[in-house]
Simulated assay, not measured.
Amino acid sequence: MNFFRQHWNPRNKHCYITGGSSGLGLALAIILAQKGADVSIVARDQTKLDEALKELENVRQTPDQKLKAFSFSLCDPKLSSDALEAACAEHGGRTPDAILMCAGAAHPRFFIESQAKDLQLGMDNAYWVQAYTAWAAAKRMVRTQTQGKIVFVGSILSYMSFIGYSSYAPGKYALRGLAETLRSELQLYDISVQMYFPATIYSPGYEEEMITKPKITKKLEETDGGQTPEQCAQALLAGIARGDFHITGELFGHIFRSYSSGISPGNNLLLDTMYSVMGLIGLPVWRRSVDSAVRAHKVEHAQYLQSNGFHAAK
């Protein structure tokens, strides 16, 4: 139960957001700025950052509120550290109170059609882009004795996966493992760790996914209603405020969270039990339907490979 937890208030706190130029990261930055937080956003594209910063300025609450943008690539450990240091410098060297890692991207495709670079890029975009930031942040928080919070953004694919996500889901599984480990370890320093598990987010990143996403993957996701970045940002912040470790914002996510939680701390004993029972009954049925759809796609897939000359390739 959440009754005895102290709810988190972002007002006057420095919130550092990766992937903050669009999608979930930008939606999160806007809401936090509206709540009176100092917000630093980090992304690669300077043009998008400039546009995002204008949106943040439109919701500024006080003249002294610090709203900053920084252009860095976060798939490199040194640049991830440099980005964090640049944001801290704007605050007189003060370490952020909250690290919210929304950076990431997916490029779904068939495993056998992937190149080695696709597999590496998948791990960069799903795991390292957040792991390096968390590493830099944890070291800085401990060094400066900052009792802050580190928040990862995973995916429903951190709990399960299916056809098309061979270059993405492994990184999200690994990210969940990192969050589980740090939740335990960083208690030594009074640093809290949380992780968000969204399903489909209708963001610019989603449009990129659709370019390479296999037809069968699209078909399996037809029943996923999806959410806007704003809806996801609200769900994420609500979970952060409550102190939930695993944060989800829709029914399917709650079912997977409760059914797959292992020894992770739960959110609500009664609701989690109900979701687990729903998973016990419904998820095996769902998995069988997925397997059935994949097997039914065999002939069409064979024709697809033939038309693309896959069998003739070396």
Results as ranks from 00 to 15, higher is better:
residue 9 N to S: 12
residue 10 P to K: 01
residue 10 P to A: 00
residue 12 N to V: 09
residue 15 C to S: 09
residue 16 Y to H: 13
residue 17 I to T: 06
residue 17 I to V: 15
residue 18 T to L: 04
residue 18 T to E: 03
residue 22 S to E: 13
residue 26 L to K: 02
residue 28 L to K: 10
residue 28 L to A: 14
residue 29 A to R: 02
residue 31 I to Y: 09
residue 33 A to F: 06
residue 34 Q to P: 02
residue 38 D to T: 09
residue 40 S to F: 04
residue 40 S to C: 11
residue 42 V to E: 11
residue 42 V to G: 08
residue 44 R to W: 00
residue 51 E to M: 15
residue 55 E to Q: 14
residue 55 E to L: 14
residue 59 V to F: 10
residue 60 R to P: 08
residue 63 P to G: 06
residue 63 P to A: 12
residue 65 Q to F: 07
residue 69 A to D: 10
residue 70 F to C: 09
residue 71 S to M: 07
residue 72 F to M: 08
residue 72 F to A: 04
residue 87 A to I: 04
residue 88 C to R: 14
residue 92 G to M: 02
residue 93 G to I: 02
residue 95 T to N: 05
residue 96 P to F: 01
residue 96 P to V: 04
residue 100 L to N: 07
residue 102 C to T: 15
residue 102 C to F: 05
residue 102 C to E: 01
residue 105 A to L: 12
residue 105 A to H: 12
residue 106 A to S: 13
residue 107 H to I: 02
residue 109 R to F: 11
residue 115 Q to P: 05
residue 115 Q to S: 14
residue 125 N to D: 14
residue 128 W to Q: 04
residue 129 V to G: 01
residue 134 A to L: 00
residue 137 A to C: 02
residue 138 A to D: 06
residue 141 M to C: 10
residue 143 R to Q: 14
residue 143 R to Y: 08
residue 145 Q to D: 15
residue 148 G to I: 03
residue 154 G to Q: 00
residue 164 G to N: 05
residue 164 G to A: 07
residue 165 Y to R: 02
residue 165 Y to H: 12
residue 167 S to C: 08
residue 173 Y to N: 06
residue 173 Y to R: 11
residue 174 A to Y: 06
residue 178 L to M: 13
residue 178 L to G: 04
residue 179 A to V: 07
residue 186 L to D: 05
residue 186 L to V: 04
residue 187 Q to D: 10
residue 189 Y to I: 01
residue 192 S to N: 10
residue 207 E to M: 04
residue 207 E to K: 10
residue 213 K to I: 13
residue 215 K to I: 09
residue 216 I to Q: 10
residue 221 E to H: 08
residue 221 E to Q: 12
residue 222 E to N: 11
residue 223 T to W: 14
residue 225 G to V: 11
residue 226 G to P: 03
residue 227 Q to C: 15
residue 228 T to C: 09
residue 229 P to M: 05
residue 230 E to P: 03
residue 232 C to P: 00
residue 233 A to I: 00
residue 234 Q to L: 14
residue 235 A to T: 06
residue 236 L to W: 03
residue 242 R to Y: 10
residue 244 D to S: 10
residue 247 I to C: 06
residue 247 I to S: 13
residue 248 T to A: 13
residue 250 E to L: 03
residue 261 S to F: 08
residue 263 I to Q: 11
residue 264 S to L: 06
residue 266 G to I: 00
residue 266 G to F: 04
residue 275 Y to L: 02
residue 275 Y to R: 01
residue 276 S to T: 15
residue 280 L to T: 13
residue 281 I to S: 05
residue 287 R to C: 13
residue 287 R to E: 11
residue 290 V to D: 03
residue 292 S to T: 15
residue 298 K to E: 15
residue 309 G to D: 06
residue 311 H to V: 00
